[in-house]
Nucleic acid binder design. Structure first.
Lengths: 353, 353
DNA sequence: GATGGCAATGTTAGCGCTACCATCAATGCG
DNA sequence: CGCATTGATGGTAGCGCTAACATTGCCATC
């Protein structure tokens, strides 16, 4: 029979020659492709996954057959057979806050390039839903999990370890990573900001900060450094995570009530800082002459606020790419020597401080 | 043998009694659970998936066995066997722009509640990567695909249709949906804004708008309505998507050069509007007394800008939830009578216009 | 007491793919 | 020339789960 005569153009057509059970999705399978190409299923499989282990002739015939049939590999079946799902899960508190967006975006892209797909899970800022979510994720047998700005429960760590799935923690630098880690020291950020403000001549420092764990670390560093420099904080305001422009405005209002003479405000996010800038404008208080404003994150808008926001730059993009690299390396079976990467941060001096 | 004596506490333990091949993930399987519970595999499966088809006794024994073994179902295997992957894919241009975030978040949550997981794909604003991405997605055999703010190629539509996967298009109201749709009319948004501004007494209208398709529809509506009302646009500025605060500032600068006497600016996103507000502040132009600013999206910060932003409210949350409902309904085999839902929009009057 | 219906459970046979081993021809080497 | 080695290919047997059908025991019905 000539090759071109038995291309399965549709299931109905094929059903006339090949008996089909009532089960199954009814779509084209690798076996169909193999039949069209005139090779065995396993050769077709190799043509897709390890093309260099197949003769040039066989390769071409399989590729032909694929494009003629419109075959799309079933990765559920492939994952089941090979124990490599080519899925990676990312856990974030919420994607509503713009902080992790850059990281998630970079992660998605870098993984897609390597043929992996991202599964998104939002745990909320409460750890409660995390465990249920973890089960759903582990059930997919992902080749890796990226934890982004998550405080994970001990139970969660245990399950992750037990499942034997590579884990990358990001956006933090814990002393005891579960597996791999790419982040920076929040405490050192706080220290650097305090030192910057001090050396710029500010002495009446205050802080508006979210109530999440990492913001707390930055605050600790900030306060410790301030104390070491001989200045004490004149005010502090804790707002709930995720931060908003509104809570920044409210925070400044609160702060000015506490300490009308404040001359520099460190905000735990750029959004918060933008809120402070907004409230200052509404009150006709000039920044930075009346007081300085310092942000965190260097989000896209930071350079375009009025005045332009001085802030801490975190390379969320690099974090995402590095996390993807970690996962892919591990999934391909290569060993990783340096499992902890400190990407650091930098201070971007603009006009607000 | 008493039940408690053969709990597989670990693979190593189990390997002493049950011969294992070198393949497989090495984790606990449903068969292990069934053995511990003293029932057949299928009964254990039913206990998990259709608990009401199993006696109370069997149910309890299986649940016991699950918690004792720490079993987590392998959804790759389940999906393969049942052709229901419990995966849903979402395609967005990018998650970096905050517009679709609310929708993606709602989608993730609503799906998680129903036991589905979200797979995220970013196509970029170019349609080029869309096809490759589509293959990767179809390969996972998701139970549904949510298209968010996507201009899909004809080829893409064909593949989607061919794969037989339920599709929900969102954030738009095309006359020819692929399958299901939840959105609103962008053109009517443009009309409503023009009418609002007109009846508020503004006569020298201008627009700053992104170059994406849906923003174009709003612009068309805006211009048509303005013309019908007998006022013509004094200026227009097209900026690249995704929009930023910076492009809003640049847009206003451009606009003021075109038409110094403009008295109302319709921006195609709140971010853009915030940029306009910022530039106005930098130039010491009072809003709305010098000119009015109208946004789009009613993002979280819109109520807290100075002056508070008048804008078009889109319920991104509702869009996400409705899309999830559509997909789940279809996945469970229920039929949907009304496949197109117009969620509409509302104008939120604040201080900027 | 035979019959049908139903509820609970089990057996079998895949889902679509790949790991593993076997096969076979072609090559290299002493 | 015999033997190991390599490269290309194929057959078989799963991966862990569930659909489809079969079986069993029980009760209500005629």
């Amino acid at each position: 029979m000539a090759d071109h005569s038995d291309i399965p153009r549709s299931r109905a057509k094929l059903a006339t020659t090949v008996r089909r059970s009532r089960r199954g999705s009814g779509s084209i399978t690798l076996a169909d492709v193999a039949k069209v190409a005139g090779v065995s299923a396993i050769t077709a499989s190799r043509a897709l996954n390890t093309p260099d282990k197949v003769s040039a002739d066989a390769l071409k015939r399989v590729q032909d057959a694929i494009s003629r049939t419109g075959y799309v590999p079933n990765m559920l079946a492939g994952g089941l057979a090979s124990s490599r799902s080519k899925l990676v899960a990312a856990l974030v508190p919420t994607i509503a806050g713009p902080v992790f967006l850059e990281t998630v975006q970079a992660l998605t892209e870098a993984l897609a390039e390597a043929g992996y797909q991202l599964m998104l899970g939002q745990s909320g800022y409460s750890g409660a839903r995390e465990d249920a979510l973890l089960d759903a994720i582990i059930g997919r047998r992902p080749d890796g999990i990226v934890l982004t700005g998550i405080m994970h429960s001990a139970e969660g760590r245990r399950r992750l370890l037990a499942a034997g799935i590579p884990v990358v923690e990001t956006w933090d630098l814990t002393p005891t990573p579960i597996d791999m880690l790419v982040g920076f020291s929040h405490e050192r950020v706080g220290i650097a900001v305090a030192e910057y403000l001090y050396s710029a001549g500010y002495r009446k420092l205050a802080i508006i900060t979210a109530d999440d764990h990492r913001a707390g670390l930055r605050r600790n560093g900030f306060e410790a450094a301030a104390a070491r420099l001989g200045v004490s904080l004149v005010g502090a305001c804790i707002v709930p995570a995720p931060t908003t422009l509104g809570s920044g405005r409210a925070g400044l209002t609160d702060l000015l009530a506490q300490a009308p003479d404040v001359d520099a405000v460190f905000c735990s996010s750029d959004i918060l800082a933008l809120g402070v800038l907004t409230e200052a404008q509404a009150r006709n208080l000039a920044v930075p002459s009346r007081f300085a404003v310092f942000g965190f994150g260097d989000l896209g808008f930071a350079g375009d606020t009025f005045p332009a926001l001085t802030t801490v730059r975190i390379d969320g993009n690099a974090i995402g790419y590095q996390a993807a690299r970690f996962i892919v390396e591990r999934a391909e079976g290569r060993d990783i020597n340096e499992r902890v990467i400190d990407l650091g941060f930098s201070i971007v001096k603009r006009d607000s401080a």
